[in-house]
Amino acid sequence: MTFKFEIEGGNFSKAGNASSAVKKILKQINVPPAIIKRLVVALYEGEVNVVAHARKGWIKVVIEPEEIFVNIEDEGPGIPNIELAMQEGYSTASQKVREMGFGAGMGLPNMKKNADLLNITSQVGKGTNVEIIIFLNQSHK
């Protein structure tokens, strides 16, 4: 099963709509609650990042018997130094983003914590691509 969503950069009133829809789908197909939580927290952090930093973005969620694959792709400024961005506390978020309760440099580390596999690639001036995999059978981890 594959699901796709569009994300509007800068629109905080809609931030989380895609993650919420994914959560509903995962509940409906009886994915264990602990796995749902890890996936939606990682996805929501990613969705908020797109809203906070990019012009627009896309989320693709592929549910397979063994794993859930998430791709978050955006058109935006990109990340010049991914290693630095992965450090807890490092942030380039605007004041507006901070007022929404984010932008403390916790997003990417939190995504890493919740994902079984996380891969981030980015081109400055073009955009960022995030891949998340969570195994449904945790013995595959």
């Binding site: 989380g16 309760g101 916790m106």
Partner: peptide
């Protein structure tokens, strides 16, 4: 983002942040 690091049930969140993302965060 700190709230999203928690992994515990039967929790009340006490906050002063009154916007839609507070509700979204609680949902997630």
């Amino acid at each position: 983002s700190d709230v999203l690091t928690l992994d515990i049930d039967k929790l009340v969140l006490i906050t002063g942040l009154n916007n839609l993302q507070t509700i979204r965060t609680a949902e997630m």
